[in-house]
Nucleic acid binder design. Sequence first.
DNA 1: TCGCCAGTGCGGATCCTGCT
DNA 2: AGCAGGATCCGCACTGGCGA
Length: 215
Amino acid sequence: MSKSTNPASPASPAGELGKSLRELRKQRGMTLSEASERAGLPVSTLSKIENNRMSVSYDKMLRISRALGVDIGQLFSPEPSVAPPAGPAPSGRRSITRAGSGYAIETSNYAHLYPAADLLNKRIVPIIADIRARTLKEFGELIRHPGEEYAYVLEGTVELHTELYAPVRLAQGDSIYFDSGMGHAYLAVGDGACRVLSICSGDAEHLIESRPDLL
DNA sequence: TCGCCAGTGCGGATCCTGCT
DNA sequence: AGCAGGATCCGCACTGGCGA
């Protein structure tokens, strides 16, 4: 059993997640057993999550969102406030994320802030990540996902390891654009805080499938 | 009353983190 | 390194509702 992730810390009230989850499951006419089978999680675990008696890791949320066939953002707001784009015409949709808000995820390698969580089916996925891993061993397996990625160092120094290039150090204000299909890992350099704004292309679904650790 | 099913409660295993 | 405390997660047993 993997314990690589810490409990998620949703910016929305904890009670809303369980409530939303139950609502979405009922809307699909699924029982706890059906949902648990599809998510690969025990029934009791799902029940506890729905009743807010257990904080859920991102890994679990990901499985649940897949089982219910919804964007992960819907777990926090079952009624999307902003519709996805419907064709070439401008959709006019927008999302404002105030400083310090957004959906927060804590893992051993990162603390993520996931802005614009209320927008579903985004074409790019912005993530603000506090990098924690300082060695490749600590980081684990290199991550890869379809599309491209842009990273801008907001604070501290980051060492980006990729499978095709020598490791490169990026200081505050530096940025890099790369093919995210290439295995890569962000490591923090030094003892201070290390924060990166990362923007990943490709639809969120593919990103979620291939890069659960980053979202 | 009985059987079935959905949901809940409880306790143990495992892992992480902080402290010494 | 070893230990303790806390948290997640799982499996099993139990409860409650409902129909036959």
